[in-house]
C-alpha cells in the first residue's frame, strides 16, 4: 500500500480518515460484497445449520409449520456411530482411499513423466487422458455397466475366469470396482497437474544428475519425484476428499450401494436417512463427522508431504 500511495503523489499532507479506516479503495467492499453475501447465505449459514441440526431431533415438516425440534445432545452422533451401515460405509471409504490414492499417485506420475518428453502424438495422448475427466459420471457409468454386466464384454473376454456373481453385484468386487472407476475417471486431471509441476523442474537438475551418471530411472526417482512433491501433496488431498464424498458411483454403478450394502458410502447413507426417510438430524451428524475426518486427513497429508523438506 505504501508504494502505491507514493505513486499517486506522496505530497498529500494527510490521508482522509476513511482511507485510514477502510483502506485505499473502500469500493472493494462493493466488489467483494456479492460473493461474500452468497457465501454467507449458501455456505456459512448452511454450515451452521448442519451443526445445529446435528444436535436436534430434526425432521421435515410442512413449510411454515411451527414444530418442536428438541435438543438431543449427542444422540444423533451416538446413533450414527453405532450404526452397522455406517461402519460398512467407513470401511468402504478406507477401501476406496487405499486403492484410489496410491494408484492415482503412481499411475499419473508415471504417465506424466512419460508425457514430459519429446514424443510423437504427445498432444493426442494428453487429450485422450483428459476425456473421461470432462465427461459426465452418469454417461461413463452407463458404459461401465455395459462393460462389466454379467454378459458384458469383460466377462466374455475372461470366459471361465469371470467372477461369479459378476463384478458389480459381487460383494467382494463391488467396492474395488467403484474405486477403480473413480480412479480412471479422475486420472487425466492428475496427469496434467503433475505434468505442469514437472515443467517447473529446472533442466540443470537433470543435467547434473546425468553428469553424475544417473540413468532414466534414477533421474525419475531422484529428480522428478522430489521435484513434484507439492503436487503430490495436492493430489493426495484432492483424492482423499473425492474418496470421502462419492455418491453417484454406488447409487448408479452398484445399484444403490449393493450388493446387500457392500458398497454403501457415507453420502449415500446421508441421502437415504436425511432426504428419503426425513431424519435430517442423523444425516447432518454424519455429514459433520465426515467433514471433520476429511479435513483432518487433509491436514495430516499436507503436513507430511509438504513439510518434510
Amino acid at each position: 500500500m505504501t508504494t502505491a500511495d507514493a505513486a499517486t503523489g506522496g505530497t498529500d499532507t494527510r490521508r482522509p480518515w476513511w482511507r485510514r479506516v477502510f483502506g485505499k479503495h473502500p469500493i472493494g467492499y462493493l466488489f467483494a460484497g456479492p460473493y461474500v453475501l452468497f457465501w454467507l447465505a449458501l455456505f456459512a449459514w448452511p454450515l451452521y445449520l448442519a451443526v445445529y441440526m446435528s444436535f436436534r431431533d430434526w425432521f421435515f415438516a410442512a413449510p411454515g409449520a411451527v414444530v418442536d425440534r428438541p435438543f438431543v445432545g449427542l444422540a444423533n452422533y451416538t446413533d450414527v456411530l453405532s450404526d452397522p451401515a455406517v461402519h460398512r460405509a467407513a470401511l468402504n471409504v478406507a477401501i476406496f482411499i487405499l486403492i484410489n490414492v496410491p494408484l492415482t499417485v503412481i499411475v499419473s506420475l508415471v504417465l506424466a513423466a512419460a508425457l514430459n518428453q519429446v514424443l510423437p502424438l504427445r498432444g493426442f495422448f494428453r487429450t485422450a487422458y483428459y476425456v473421461p475427466y470432462v465427461t459426465a459420471s452418469v454417461a461413463m457409468i452407463a458404459v461401465w455397466l455395459f462393460l462389466f454386466s454379467n454378459g458384458g464384454m469383460v466377462n466374455q473376454v475372461l470366459g471361465p475366469l469371470a467372477p461369479d456373481p459378476s463384478w458389480l453385484v459381487n460383494r467382494y468386487w463391488a467396492m474395488p470396482m467403484i474405486a477403480l472407476f473413480a480412479t480412471w475417471k479422475q486420472l487425466g486431471f492428475y496427469v496434467l497437474l503433475y505434468l505442469a509441476a514437472m515443467q517447473g523442474i529446472s533442466e540443470t537438475l537433470y543435467e547434473a544428475a546425468e553428469v553424475d551418471g544417473a540413468g532414466p530411472l534414477r533421474k525419475f526417482w531422484s529428480v522428478t519425484v522430489p521435484g513434484v512433491r507439492s503436487a503430490t501433496a495436492l493430489v493426495v488431498v484432492l483424492a482423499t476428499i473425492v474418496g470421502a464424498n462419492f455418491f453417484t458411483e454406488p447409487y448408479l454403478l452398484t445399484g444403490g450401494g449393493g450388493p446387500n450394502g457392500a458398497s454403501v458410502s457415507p453420502v449415500l447413507l446421508m441421502y437415504r436417512a436425511g432426504i428419503e426417510q426425513g431424519d435430517a438430524g442423523w444425516a447432518a451428524a454424519l455429514g459433520v463427522m465426515l467433514a471433520v475426518v476429511v479435513m483432518a486427513l487433509s491436514a495430516v497429508n499436507r503436513f507430511f508431504l509438504e513439510d518434510r523438506e
Binding site: 454450515l47 464424498n245 432426504i275 455429514g287 479435513m295
Partner: peptide, 19 residues
C-alpha cells in the same frame, strides 16, 4: 472466505442446503 469454500466438501452442506 474464498479459500474456505474450496476446502469444505459440498456433501456436508447437502442436507442443510436441501432444508
Amino acid at each position: 472466505i474464498v479459500l474456505l469454500s474450496l476446502v469444505l466438501p459440498f456433501q456436508l452442506l447437502m442436507i442443510p442446503l436441501y432444508v
